[in-house]
Nucleic acid binder design. Sequence first.
RNA 1: GGGCGAUUAGCUCAGUUGGUUAGAGCGUCUGUCUUACACACAGGAUGUCGCAGGUUCGAGUCCUGCAUCGCCCACCA
Length: 897
Amino acid sequence: MSDISKAYNPSEVEDKWYRTWVESGCFKGETRNSNAPHYSIVIPPPNVTGVLTMGHVLNNTIQDILIRRARQEGKSAVWIPGTDHAGVATQTKVDAYLRSEGTSARELGRDKFIERAKAWRDKHGGIIIEQLKKLGASCDWSRLVHTLDDDYSKAVLTAFVELFKKGHIYRGKRMVNWCPVNLTALSDEEVLMKPCKSKLYKMRYEIAEEPGRFVEISTTRPETIMGDTAVAVNPDDDRYRNLIGKHCWRPFPRAKIPIIGDSYVDMKFGTGVLKVTPAHDPADFEIGQRHNLEIIDVMNPDGTMNELAGPDFAGMDRFKARDRAVEKLRELGLLIKEEDYENNVGYSERGGVPIEPRLSDQWFLRYPKIKEAKDAVESGAIKFWPKRWEKTYAHWLDNIRDWCISRQIWWGHRIPVWYRKGVENPDIHNPEEVHVSVDGPSDKENWVQDEDSLDTWASSWLWPFATMGWPDKNKMKELGMEYFYPTSDLVTGPDIIFFWVARMIMAGLEFLPGTMSSRIPFKNVYFTGIIRDMQGRKMSKSLGNSPDPLEIIAKYGSDGLRFGVMNCAPQGQDILFSQERVEIGRNFCNKLWNACRFRKMSGDLADNSSIAAICARIDTNMLDADDHAILSNLLASAEQVRRDYESYQFNSITQNLYSFFWNDFCGWYLEVSKSRMGYAKAKRTVLAVQDLCLRQTLLLLHPFMPFITEELWHQMGYGKDGEFIQNASPEFADELEKSGIAIDEDSAASVALLKDFVTKARALKAQCAQGTKRDSMLGFIPADDHAKMLLENNIDKLKKLVGAQEISMASDSGNSPALLSDMGTIFINASEVVSDGAERKKMLKEREKLEGFVKSTLARLGNPNFTAKAPKEVVDGAKRQLAEAKAKIEEIDRLLK
RNA sequence: GGGCGAUUAGCUCAGUUGGUUAGAGCGUCUGUCUUACACACAGGAUGUCGCAGGUUCGAGUCCUGCAUCGCCCACCA
């Protein structure tokens, strides 16, 4: 017998097995065996320079569980890993780094910048990949993809060119969300609406045609007054209709601006008069278009005011300018009042400052396949788990607007468009003037490439197929795209349902050939919850409530972390996480470890190489009720696990297996084994049943706790060297049947009675201050013949479990302290026993409960509607339970008298 | 302003298509190093199932309304 330590030590086991797995190549997706069913997942690519968070732990543990289960089921499975370049986020980090080096992106120029950025990425990037390995993620690392890889970049540019040729991509001057920090346009999805405490200023503009008459206007943005080119009222508004066509004075720079009528203006809001600033508000821009208004942009890209704002403001930050504008209004006597006001302000997701609506030349995508994308989910070709996200998805598609895909940054895929040198206002549809292709024009010296790069999401939306070689036919074949696409399951957070999930669906439908079911990128999408702290707050660096998963792994082991997280992660609900949850997982590992240790100490391991080999050691004549019960529970657990996988109920799986193993197997079966193993004839069978239970438990737990299960799998002789538990099937019902082992459910059911007997006997002992006594003298008055027989057949086990020297059959308990069990009355048969009457109190309490039950059951049975309408089983059940309760009351009364 | 989710023991949550007397883990209290495990074992205490109606023989479970908390979407200055 090998030395096996008393407590499980995860760190050495985990590192050893991860190394062995990778060396063996067992995570590699098999592309040759086309007969086996295929299963695939693509990882949601983390930022290449990011580090592992609890969110990643949840997300990737689920993926690992799914892929390992698929391997166990004999599928040819692949999990494709990778990272993305996270355009704006990384550019910001590199900019900061360059500043610390005393230089800047601008100073270096584009090419040098890219060079430095790549070097920086290679130095600081990829940490997260190593961390995923610590977690046990069984990705096919030979397929690691990065969105800026040459092949992937080619896919991104190909997609752009195709969409351009189809007319889905256009360039135009539009109002976009501008981030004054990162100096780039953003998509609508990258703008976060935040409720803000701001001020609503009421001011007045004088009517030019009627000096001394004013209109009152409310605004939250006085700093844009300089860009006002009109004042608008609703044409149906009786108060102001007569002003339309006249003018008023814009206070600074002082200018006459028209008063126009536009039905956009809400008569009920504020004063019903709107100042129109076409250059700085999307709605105002629309009004400006309708009325042909002048557009005056008074801001610089960085959010400072420009010369057009006037000498008082030029160069001033927009928020300073706001204060200054208010001051000026006050000086001019035009400010009526200022009041506190709460409104929603759009913030830049990355920059963390309010975005500025800004008119600029950008590239836009008219989303392709919108309707089909909606159909794909509505028809069930793609299933969402939980289903409720389907509504959110459909709503987004119904209200979709063109996607601004250009970014004014260098870190990303440069837009593959070239303009002929010397041509002013080149015509985008004239190939003589504008060139659009993946490789660019052959005479590059005569052209200038567009400076913008693509939104990161405009590269990652191709992820499911660009990671499989698309559009290169040879690569696609080599990587087995015909087998692995569409992918099976996508696991991600609902926060990127629009950013990523919806767009991937559209991309798959747009770029791949065939029927809908062959073009969709995945068949199921599992949306995880968000990991929060115990107060329900999001994990964040600034709150300091974000534990480092690596520290947790070092302390408790990866298996413990995985189990702890999955155990409290109901489908699609947010998760309140604390380290105590990981302790449960760690403790469970220890329980597993010690159960196997106990098995080894109980006797030499026999042939454990297969279910058949184990079953061959079982003498069916030696199987008793406990064997039938544990095997029955094992089968039921395995079946429940199978069903839970189908509906993605992971926490149900952990709870089920935890309860089976801890309570049924360790808490009961191993305990009864201790007495049965004293008999040579039974021992061989009991050990075989233990081996079978341990084997199947390890298999069922493996996807959740890959390391310890692999270790024990080999220690216990279930698997040969070079073979892995991930490739062994968890099915065993058929094999059991083939080996001639049939479960007797009636016999199994009687174990519940034995358990109740033990619990009650222990309680009685505890109440009589004999809790720790191992040789109590007990008496037993069986409730019926079945109970009598059960006691006789299991007497040795019961004595050991209860801690009794004797349990003697009796017909009367006299005045001894007694308790009622489901099998009959148990009493302590010793005159010197001192009882404080606790057992009498317990019985009185029991009696009260029973009385209540009898009363309500009598009432139910007395109700003709109940007996007539309720199913027969329910009525019969009620009658039977009534009789049992009455009998118990009778016995209690007898004992208490 | 629309939509979605949550509300069950001190804490975190289970509770399948409505069917006996509502469960688990953690925590807590008492006892135990009982020859696998103190990361353990045995025993105990703890609930107006958010509120109000309704459907039903029967509701934690289905329906309606309300409340509180949270999330998503939305161009009202």
